[in-house]
Design a protein around this nucleic acid. Sequence first.
DNA 1: CAATCCCGCTAACAGTCGTTAGTGCGGATA
DNA 2: TATCCGCACTAACGACTGTTAGCGGGATTG
Lengths: 211, 211
Amino acid sequence: MARNIRTREGGRREEIATAAARLFREKGFSGTGMRDLAGSVGIEAASLYNHIDSKAGLLREICFRIADDCSTHLRDLEATPGLDSLRRLESITRFHVRMWIERLDEVLVATNEFRSLEEPWLEKFLHERRIYMRQVEGIISQGIREGLVRPLEPYVVVLTIMSAVRGIEFWHRSRKNVSAASLEESMVDLIVNGIRNDTDGTSDTHGPALP
Amino acid sequence: MARNIRTREGGRREEIATAAARLFREKGFSGTGMRDLAGSVGIEAASLYNHIDSKAGLLREICFRIADDCSTHLRDLEATPGLDSLRRLESITRFHVRMWIERLDEVLVATNEFRSLEEPWLEKFLHERRIYMRQVEGIISQGIREGLVRPLEPYVVVLTIMSAVRGIEFWHRSRKNVSAASLEESMVDLIVNGIRNDTDGTSDTHGPALP
DNA sequence: CAATCCCGCTAACAGTCGTTAGTGCGGATA
DNA sequence: TATCCGCACTAACGACTGTTAGCGGGATTG
C-alpha cells in the first residue's frame, strides 16, 4: 500500500501518473517497466511504491478516469434541453475530438491498453463502454427517425464516429500546418457532412463497385 | 537461424505466423510470450526456433506484409485509367474496409504493435506509411481542385478515412445483426456522404458551437 | 529539543523473458 | 539397410519483471 495516502499535496503522485500515461502510450502497458517509469520521474523503481499501489492500479486509474469523463459528458448532454439529435451527435463528436487533442496519452491508453486491466475491472470497463455506445446508438436511431440523420446502420455510425477521431493520433506526431482549432472543425464537419461535394444536388452515391 | 528454410511445405511455419498475429493482437507484442505462442500451436517454446528466427521477425513479417499490400493496391489503382479522384478515394476506403474485415489480426498488429519493431525496420515502416498517406492526400487535393470533394483540410481527410475503418474492430467482437457486406456499404457510404441528411438541400452545416 | 513521518535509497525475492545447446525419434532418401 | 534430416523434446543461460523489506536523512510537528 502506498504510504503517502494522507499527503497534503500529491504532486509527486500526479507526476508519476502523468509519466505512466505517456509511457504506457509509447511502449504499451506490458512494454513499460517500473524501472522505466521510475527513471522518467528521476527516482528508483522501489521508491515509486511510496506513492502508488501497483502498476495495475496506474492503468486502472487512467482507464476509468477517461470512461467516467465520457459518461459524465453524455449524461450532461442528455440533461440539456432544446437540442435535436443531430446537434447532440455533433456535441459528442466534438467532445471526443477535444479529448483526443488535449489528453492524447490518457485516451490512447484507455483505448489500446485497457485489455491489460485485471478482472473484475476489465469486465466493468467493457460494460461501461458498451452502455455508452448503446446510448449514442440510440441518439442516432432517433435522428434517423426524425429524418435528420441519413438512414444508415446506426451501429456502424457509432463505430465510425468513435474511430474516426483516432486519426488525431497521427496529427499529434506530425503537426504539419494544421491548428488544433482547424483540425476540430474539419473533422467534425467531415463526419457530419462526408467528403463528397453535393452542391449540384446529385444524390447518386457512386458508380459500379470498385475493386 | 531456423532450420527448415528448405522445407518443402512450410505449413507449420504459417500456422505459427497466424497464431502469432492473433496473440499479438489480443495481448500485444510484449505481452505475448514465446511460451504462449508455442502452447497455442501445441509445442514447446524452444521448438518454435526450428521454424522461425525470432519473435521480432514474426512481428516484422506481419507489419511489412500489410504495408506491402497497401502500397501495391495504391500502385494498381493509380495505373487504372478512367477513374476520377472521388472514385479512387472510394476504392481506397473500400480496400481498407475489406482488409479490416478479412484480416483483422494482421491489420491490428500492423496498426498497434508496429512500434515494437526494431531499427532500422521501425523507421522503414514509418517511412512507407508516410509515403502512402501523402499519396492519398494528393488524390484528395486533386478531388478538391476538381470540385468533387468538399474543400476540407486534405490532411485531416486522410487521417479520418484511415481511422474510421478501425471501428470494424468492435464489429468483429459483437457481430450484432450486421453482415460484412452491409457493414462495408454503410461505412463507405458514411465516409463518402457523412451522416447528415441533406435531402432538403440545406447547406448550413450546424448551429452555434456546442460544448 | 524530541518525536513523527514523508520519501528517497539499496538489496533482494521469486518468477518470467527470449533464446541456445544438445539429444533422440521417425520418416524419407541413397 | 545405412544415412540423413526435419522436428520435437529437456535443460539451462543471463537478463529482466513487479514488488517487498528495511534503512536513514531531512523536514514537520508536539
